[in-house]
Simulated assay, not measured.
Amino acid sequence: MMVILLGKDETNKDAVMTWDPDRYEAWFDTPEGSYALDREVQLLQAMLAGWPRRKRKLLEIGCGTGLFLEPLYQMGLDVTGIDKSQEMIRAARKRLGNRATLSVGRGEHMGYSDNEFDYALVWSVLEFTEDPEAMLVEAARVAEKGLLVGFLNKNSLYYCMNVRGSGSSLSKAHWFTWCEMQDLIHKATDFRPTLARSVLAGPMKTWKPVGMSNQINARLLPPALGAFVAVRVDFVNMKPLTPLFAWKSEPEMG
């Protein structure tokens, strides 16, 4: 569930943490929200490019209103979503109908069998759970082939210029740095990231589909730069504890 921008002037903690579907969806009707959503879907597609999708099962943990389950379904995946909010699941059912299997539940303690899914997606949810490590352990348990994690970058210009010190509920979430997320994934899964990229390198005022700002914000960048980061972890044909593309320094992008 993408929660990067439930409202730039949001100060009511309960309003965000109860995940009002109408407020959540309304953000994506704004110019900035629509642009951010497009960039995240672009990032999601790029990260999934290395995975087979036809007849593969994917579980999204914290699926919200199904904003990302919809493009995942369109990519050819059989999709399932779980969310702790009944209101969010109700909205997701309205959006997706019978194209997805949806249920209410907590990502830290799921009733699915080991390796029940090919892949698991945890998309901007770890910032808002009390035990992110437990959620990643569960995600790795139910996913046989791989895990995809999306998170909000504490070292981004967006955090520094739009969130830090704002007093909003978003500023009270647990924002991760790229180094922190690598360590968390390693601790929870015994695997290192296979691939990581980010989008939205500029502050929110630059999130526009025109000009130089668009060229910067829409580009797939190293993980330490953008406001939103995606990390892919492959479980198949990899040995635990062997880093692959787990950069200690940022690579040059062509």
Rank of each mutant, 00 (worst) to 15 (best):
M1T: 07
M2C: 06
V3L: 06
I4C: 01
K8G: 00
D9N: 15
T11V: 14
K13F: 09
A15F: 07
A15G: 02
V16P: 00
D22E: 15
Y24D: 13
A26T: 12
A26H: 13
D29C: 04
A36G: 05
L37H: 14
D38R: 15
Q42I: 03
Q42L: 13
L43K: 08
L44M: 10
A46L: 03
A46P: 02
G50Y: 00
P52L: 03
K55S: 14
K55P: 01
K55M: 06
L59R: 03
C63E: 06
C63P: 08
T65A: 12
G66S: 11
L69V: 10
E70W: 03
P71E: 09
L72Y: 05
Q74Y: 08
V79D: 09
T80F: 14
T80R: 12
S85N: 07
S85H: 06
E87M: 11
R90S: 15
A91R: 15
R93E: 15
R95G: 09
L96T: 03
N98H: 14
N98F: 06
L102Q: 13
S103Y: 02
G105N: 10
R106N: 14
E108D: 14
Y112A: 07
D118A: 08
Y119I: 07
Y119M: 07
A120E: 11
L121W: 10
S124N: 13
S124Q: 08
S124L: 00
S124T: 12
A134T: 07
E138V: 07
A139V: 10
A139S: 15
A140V: 04
V142P: 10
E144D: 14
K145G: 04
K145R: 15
G146V: 06
F151E: 00
S156E: 06
L157R: 13
Y158W: 12
Y159N: 05
C160H: 09
C160L: 13
N162I: 02
V163L: 02
G165L: 09
G167A: 07
S168M: 01
S171N: 02
W178G: 00
C179Q: 10
C179I: 08
M181P: 04
D183G: 01
D183P: 00
T189V: 08
D190S: 09
A196D: 04
V199K: 07
G202Q: 13
P203V: 00
W207F: 13
K208F: 02
V210N: 05
G211P: 02
S213G: 04
N214P: 00
L221N: 09
L221E: 07
L225G: 00
F228A: 00
A230D: 00
N237A: 12
N237W: 01
M238T: 13
K239C: 07
L241T: 05
L244I: 14
L244T: 13
A246H: 03
W247F: 14
E250V: 11
P251G: 09
